[in-house]
Design a binder for these strands. Structure first.
Lengths: 275, 275
DNA sequence: TGCAAAGGGTACGCACAGCGTACACGGAGG
DNA sequence: CCTCCGTGTACGCTGTGCGTACCCTTTGCA
């Protein structure tokens, strides 16, 4: 039995890597094109340290400087590509998401759990949903979204505990913020096999989600459909949308099972022997 | 036989950051869920070094382990969000891209130059374009794409030189691989104000692109429309699509100029980072 | 049954990578 | 004139991060 890799030895943690990401992620809507000094203040690092890190990131192609101001390059977008490339479900799901969008005329998305957040891993957007600017990589709270409810409903108990520990902030007057009620909702999801959440994240934002299962039956993602309350009612969703989602989720699961099992066998490197 | 001579001898370069990214990016289609030893071999680092890096990345939330195999977490997708958050054009362009998609029924995209590649920074996909799996973050070669031609046409001379130095690989029998001819094409683009590229990257892949200019007139991105040759002819594009693109590109430029430093307050504040 | 191969962890001591302090410079604004 | 903002860099020291070496477990095959 593998022990949990814990033991904050400090010896198995590379400070420079943490600092590198700290600087990279310090570029923010609040600080789109910061100066070196601003980054130092923001990250709490010394100016020479930030400078070394910036020059490193620049050499690696992730940031560039124009005058005294620094900015991210499009290369940071490339990092995410490695996720899609290593998680077959993203590519498998895309055509199915388009099918949902075509059949329903609204946006559909695929999301997974990361820590205590929901992260969109694939999305087909038909039109902008209210003020929410949702795209691949967007993090949303678990408790106020249909995808989050689905993912939490089938997650391990410790995961749900962690989510509750993180707190259930209120976004609208309908947000479920009570842990007991939240667990009740998860129970509802498990019984019904889908989740519908209405205006708990933003007023008028209405969405439905169902689990996507892999070959072993494990829930590996949530498939969702989102719209505005003015365009559809909850009853609409239950009657017409949820069946489509369930069908498509099953299709995705089937395609997922049919994946070539990562067939590409690794070539043995002749690096040690003669050739 | 130590293969890689360390060319980064500058005192202002942090080796650990480079190594961190090396390990993170070693996860790809050929190695979706590698073992520690596989990563060590792939990156050329020692096993203890890779282990330290993996444990660090795990603590930061970018990788996770199941048994002896490691994989990326959805959190790597979050990194790209910082690009959109710091580059107003991405958010500004999205509704316009949707307009193009709605008016034309095909996919439209926004891309920028990164080194010698074109990187998609925003995209609205209506349907899958041939075998190309294009999404935000995808890198494509400059010389064989309409967006690349547009961006190169208005780029600095040194940038074009760098692109030519990198070589013009052939993808189809129609790919422009001759530097002289490539420069001619750039000249054509500057004269016409748009680029149309037919089947130079993949047979049957047809696209048109126009420049997007900011308030000062600088070309900051390329706006493109892509389709299959079976569905549209080049004449179709010139007659009906290019005018739409030019109009929309102007709209984007106008919105961009009207972007008052920072006015967008429409982000759900999803907390990330644990400490 | 045993051995090799492939997976993994950990101890340990040394080198130098990376650290921050301190100082210098240039420009803008008072 | 000074101050505040921005930058770069010299430099000595700390201790981070390095790799070697060794050990364990599991698996597969002879």
């Amino acid at each position: 039995m593998n022990a949990i890799p814990d033991q904050r030895n400090g010896r198995d943690f590379i400070q420079s890597i943490e600092r590198g990401f700290a600087v990279l992620l310090a570029f923010d809507a609040d600080l789109p094109t910061p100066t070196l000094a601003e980054l130092a203040k923001r990250t709490g690092l010394s100016r020479p340290a930030v400078r070394r890190i910036l020059l490193t990131l620049q050499k690696l192609g992730y940031v560039s400087s124009r005058g005294p101001r620094w900015s991210l390059t499009p290369r940071v977008l490339t990092i995410g590509q490695h996720y899609a490339a290593t998680h077959g479900i993203v590519e498998v799901a895309r055509p199915h998401l388009m099918r949902v969008a075509e059949r329903t005329g609204e946006s559909s998305s695929l999301a997974q759990l990361d820590g205590t957040d929901v992260v969109y891993v694939a999305r087909v957007h038909v039109r902008r949903v209210l003020s929410l600017n949702v795209d691949v990589g967007t993090r949303l709270p678990v408790h106020a979204t249909s995808m989050g409810r689905v993912l939490a409903a089938y997650a391990e108990a410790t995961t749900v505990d962690r989510i509750l520990d993180a707190g259930l902030p209120r976004f609208t007057e309908w947000t479920v913020t009570d842990p007991i009620e939240f667990r009740d909702r998860l129970h509802d999801v498990r019984r019904a096999g889908y989740a519908i959440v209405d205006s708990e994240l933003e007023d008028g934002f209405l969405s439905a989600a169902v689990p996507v299962r892999d070959a072993t039956g494990d829930v590996v993602a949530a498939l969702a459909y989102s719209t505005a309350r003015g365009r559809h009612s909850i009853e609409d969703l239950e009657r017409t949308v949820v069946p489509v989602l369930l069908e498509v989720a099953a299709d995705i699961g089937r395609d997922l099972a049919a994946l070539p099992e990562r067939s590409r066998r690794l070539r043995v490197d002749a690096r040690d022997g003669f050739f």
